[in-house]
Structure formats: C-alpha cells, structure tokens
Amino acid sequence: MWFQLVLVVALVLIGAYLLLSKPGARHLAVRRVIMLISLLAGVTVIIWPGLLTQLARLVGVGRGVDLLFYLALVAGLLYVVNEYKRSVMLARANTHLARELVLTEARLTDRISALEARLDERAP
C-alpha cells in the first residue's frame, strides 16, 4: 500500500518538475541520468529476473511484473510530458521564426520599393 503512495508522489513530482523546469543543461543532465539508471535497472532485471519479484514483495506489490508495469506507467508519463514540452517549445520557435521571416520580407519589399521610387525620380 505504501508503494502506491510513493508512485503517486513520484508522478506528481515528475509532472511538476517537467512542467515547471526550463529546458537547459540541467534538464538535459537529469534526463540523461534517468535514462542511465533505467538502462542499468533493465540490464540488472534481465540478468537476475527473480530480483524484480523480490523487490516487488519488498515494496508490497504482489508480482514483479506488476511492479514493472507501475514503473513503466511512470516512465511513460515522464516521456509524454517531456515530449509535450518539447513540442510546445518547437512550436514557439517556429512561430518566432515565421514572424521574423515575414517582417524581414516586408522590410526588404519596402526598401526595394523605395529604391525603385528613387530610380524613377532620377530617370529622364
């Protein structure tokens, strides 16, 4: 039962961290550490499959596969929220670039029009 509380708290903390943090070097470092820990845990469980069942019983979950499922839910949420943040960041960057492109084209068109007007005034 206490493990369910730990999972809920983990989900809330992961969600808060990902929603409130700004992408940067620290954010990337945390993602890399989480990935490394996940890979090491996966290799450990593959080499010693009984360890997962023992760990599940230790934390109050019936079977190792149930524990693995709960942890996969947490990891899935982590991935979805992270990709959502990344998508929003890319959309904002694209909007900014599109605005800059339109403004640059407008400035260029204005300068070309002004230059053509000057040339027309000087023509005999």
Rank of each mutant, 00 (worst) to 15 (best):
L101F: 01
A72C: 08
L28P: 05
V74G: 00
G64I: 12
R63L: 07
G62S: 15
V59H: 05
L103P: 02
A10K: 01
E116T: 07
A41P: 11
P23M: 02
R92E: 05
V45Y: 13
S113P: 03
T44G: 03
T44S: 09
L67F: 09
R107Q: 08
G42P: 00
V65A: 13
R32L: 15
V8L: 14
A29F: 12
L20F: 10
A93W: 05
L101T: 05
L73C: 12
A98E: 06
A10D: 11
K85N: 00
L58C: 03
L18R: 08
L13T: 09
G42M: 11
A123Y: 12
E121R: 13
H96E: 15
V43A: 09
S87E: 02
G42K: 02
R118S: 06
L28S: 15
A56P: 06
Y70C: 13
T109P: 01
L97F: 10
V65G: 01
R31H: 14
L36I: 15
Q4K: 10
S87H: 07
L101Q: 03
D110I: 00
Y17L: 12
W2I: 15
F3R: 09
E83F: 02
I46Q: 14
L7Q: 08
V8T: 07
M89A: 11
A114V: 12
P49Y: 02
A75T: 01
D110H: 05
M89H: 01
A72P: 03
V6I: 14
H27T: 04
A98R: 07
Y84R: 00
Y17M: 09
A117T: 01
K85L: 00
A72Y: 11
T53I: 03
R32N: 13
Q54K: 15
G76D: 01
R99G: 04
G62I: 12
E121Q: 12
R107F: 11
Y17S: 10
L36D: 12
V65W: 14
R86W: 09
I112K: 05
F3Q: 10
D66A: 10
V88W: 02
G50H: 07
A117P: 11
V81W: 09
L19Q: 05
I34K: 14
V59W: 04
G15R: 04
S21K: 07
L67D: 08
L39F: 08
V102Q: 00
T44R: 15
I37A: 10
Y17I: 11
K22C: 04
V9W: 02
A75D: 10
E105S: 05
G50I: 03
